[in-house]
Amino acid sequence: MNYDSPSEAIAEFERLYGDAVRPDPAPLTEAEQQAVRAHAEASTTPPPDAGRAGRA
């Protein structure tokens, strides 16, 4: 298809795909959710010697 102006092309795109376009990022996949949970668990559990770090 050829369009006479960018606004014509954008209008056609919105007409064809407007329902499928999301204003936000796509939802996380199951693997991404698992990674977020694993990272959260690891970052909230201090290492065994964390209380002694930096002390002489």
Rank of each mutant, 00 (worst) to 15 (best):
G54T: 06
A26R: 12
E8I: 02
E14D: 08
D19I: 04
G18M: 00
D24L: 06
A35K: 13
S7E: 15
P6M: 13
S5R: 07
G18F: 00
R37M: 11
E30P: 01
A42Y: 01
Y17R: 13
A20C: 04
P6E: 10
G51Q: 02
D24C: 05
V21E: 05
R22F: 07
T44R: 14
D49C: 06
D49N: 14
Y17V: 04
A56H: 06
V21C: 04
D49W: 10
P46W: 01
A38H: 03
R22G: 05
A40H: 15
F13V: 03
T44V: 12
E14G: 01
P23I: 06
M1K: 09
H39S: 05
P47T: 15
A9H: 01
A42V: 03
G18K: 00
M1Y: 00
R52N: 06
A38P: 05
G51R: 03
G54N: 09
S5M: 08
G18A: 02
I10Y: 15
A53V: 12
G51K: 01
G51Y: 02
A26V: 04
G51N: 00
A38Y: 03
T45V: 11
A35W: 06
A9I: 05
R15V: 02
Q34H: 10
I10G: 05
R37A: 09
P48C: 06
G18C: 00
R37F: 04
R15C: 03
T29N: 05
A20M: 11
T45S: 12
T29M: 07
T45F: 00
S7K: 12
M1D: 04
Q33C: 13
P6W: 15
E32T: 11
E32Q: 15
P6H: 11
I10V: 15
R52Y: 12
R55A: 04
R55I: 06
P6Y: 15
N2T: 08
T44I: 05
S43M: 14
S5H: 08
Y17G: 03
T45H: 02
R15Y: 08
T29F: 10
A26E: 13
H39E: 14
H39P: 00
